[in-house]
């Protein structure tokens, strides 16, 4: 297992370097003049030249890239061109909001989707299975922004049960939780369907395997067979999917952050791209990439822990 972890982390590091290099190139290839956007129409040539030098845009691309990696290795993600605050400080001030949103969204969708998929597999081809199928496909197909808007109109505007915008008062956990309910509903609803369908398919496959038949022949209770024998194997693809899902949502939650006017990493990157705030874009992108790769690596390690066949295949 130790060797497996080392190999997996090495692979993760290579992925981070390649992904960030590609993204760096793409960001610089986007047309547009960051200096005009940052300095505004009244900027003098001297002011433009100074900012150009400060951002390192006067140097060849490869020099900029190497300098960027060198600085990152020293823990320096750069400085925001507008506020002159360290990018790491800005990123980590936004990260808890996104992490909170993602975990609540994934948490509630897993809490509903996994049992739904299990139950559906056990009751295969019954009306409950069919109803679950319709519900799952329904949640997958409804766009998240539609869920966001309707949930806002119903629960915030008409019923006034929940707040519409913001992240809640600092230090007031209940208030912060209230502010998380609607965004996590919008972000997580689609995942309920995905997880239910995935777990159902895996469960059906596992329930047909020899060791399950053997367990039944030994007269073990059905609940023990489903929860202790079948689900442990059937959950593996779901664990991998959750790993990717968490990484995806790090920047994918941007729509929820805009619609609900919440702070977060997705919104931070979105605003920085619009304003061509290169240091914030790059610093946030590299951190997001690292977190993405980390979450998928952890998911892989959990899968390997649950299924020894996986760690032998790398």
């Amino acid at each position: 297992m130790g060797f497996y972890i080392i190999k997996r982390l090495g692979l993760a590091a290579i992925i981070v370097v390649i992904a960030v290099s590609l993204l760096y190139g793409m960001i610089h290839a986007v047309p547009g003049d960051p200096l005009s956007i940052v300095l505004g129409p009244r900027a003098t040539p001297e002011m433009r030249a100074e900012l150009n030098e400060r951002l390192g845009l006067d140097k060849p691309f490869i020099v900029q890239l190497v300098t960027f990696f060198f600085n990152v290795m020293r823990g320096d993600l750069g400085t925001d061109v507008f506020s002159e605050r360290p990018v790491s400080e800005i990123f980590f001030s936004q990260l808890p909001f996104t992490i909170g949103l993602i975990f609540l969204a994934i948490g509630w969708s897993a809490a509903v989707g996994i049992p739904l998929g299990c139950y559906s597999a056990i009751r295969r081809n019954t009306w409950i299975d069919k109803l679950t199928g319709v519900f799952s496909v329904g949640t997958i197909t409804i766009p998240s922004f539609v869920v966001a808007l309707y949930s806002l109109l119903i629960f915030a505007v008409h019923l006034k049960w929940l707040p519409a915008i913001g992240a809640g008062n600092e230090g007031d956990l209940l208030d912060q939780f209230k502010h998380l309910i609607l965004p996590s509903l919008a972000v997580g609803l689609g995942w309920v369907g995905y997880l239910a369908r995935l777990v159902r398919a895996s469960m059906l496959e596992v329930l047909g395997e020899n060791h399950i038949r053997t367990a039944r022949a030994f007269g073990l209770p059905e609940r023990t067979i489903v929860l202790s024998y079948a689900l442990r194997l059937a959950i593996l693809p779901t664990v991998a999917l959750l790993g990717v899902g968490i990484g995806y949502m790090l920047s994918g939650a941007v729509f929820a952050e805009i619609v609900f006017a919440r702070p977060g990493v997705g919104k931070l990157i979105f605003d920085a791209v619009i304003t061509r705030n290169y240091p914030v874009v790059m610093g946030s992108v590299i951190m997001t990439t690292i977190l993405f790769v980390l979450s998928t690596t952890i998911a892989d390690l959990i899968s390997a822990f649950l299924d020894p066949r996986i760690r032998e295949n790398l």
Binding site: L153, V157, K160, I165, I258, A261
Partner: peptide, 19 residues
């Protein structure tokens, strides 16, 4: 002062009593 760039979000925020 709440920074809300999207006007539609601001409208919902107003109707919900948040601004």
């Amino acid at each position: 002062f709440y920074p809300i760039d999207d006007e539609k979000t601001a409208e919902i925020g107003f109707e919900a009593g948040d601004i």
